[in-house]
Amino acid sequence: MAATALTIDGLEVSFGSVKAVNNVTMTIAEGELRVLLGANGAGKTTLMDLISGRTHSTSGHIHLYDTEITNWQEHRIARAGIGRKFQIPSVFRELTVRQNFEVASCRNPSVFANLGFGFSRHALARIEEVLAIVDLRDKADVTAAYLSHGQTQWLELGLLMLQDPKVILLDEPTAGMTAAETKKTANIINSMRGKHTLLVVEHDMAFVREIAERITVLHLGEVLAEGDIASIETNEAVRRAYLGSRSIS
């Protein structure tokens, strides 16, 4: 059996009197692709915020492999091996695509280590590879602000590949995409499978079917169900809570 990449144990956070995430416990195995489903306000993004250090939990623990990373600062969590893609694409808009990738391939976080020029042959080769994977090779010298919405999303996925974290959190990677773009995104994500452990928040069921192995359903901050796509689609509790009485999609 594969090692456990991410362990979430009794995680809770409250904003005022609202418990946004309530006693969530889940484990994700190394190399797994887990999809998080849930209606608006179910706590999916908050859970990602907690894992990546943007929000601090009120109780519970998060382990990355054997390291407890609960409530660390964001850049330390990132360096420990958790990468995150935001719902609204977030890239370095005034830099070119290639420069974006160069920033992401800086391994050493300190200023003084980065006072040199240029990048290693290995890093440059890896940048070319990623440019090919996300299909931005002919846009390499274009300023990121001029990319289309889909291309910006792929650029951000590319940043994550270069950062090369053990666990990657993707928050609605296909939001606002056309069907063709969604298909391409699914291919990119499938190419990341195996190399990284992935946790994906998504609403688009066609896309979920394309990529999902196991699904965790959140409802009002709690884990409602967990299983493969067939068992979730037929789960009575999920139907009632998330989909109303009608069937999925």
């Binding site: 990468g83 890239v91 420069q99 920033v103 800086c106």
Partner: peptide
Amino acid sequence: TRAGLILQATRDDETRARYLGLDVPS
């Protein structure tokens, strides 16, 4: 330098830089 490039990255999007593991304030 690489540091100069990273600096411009932090100017464009501090949060993104932080989530790439860079110590933005330094």
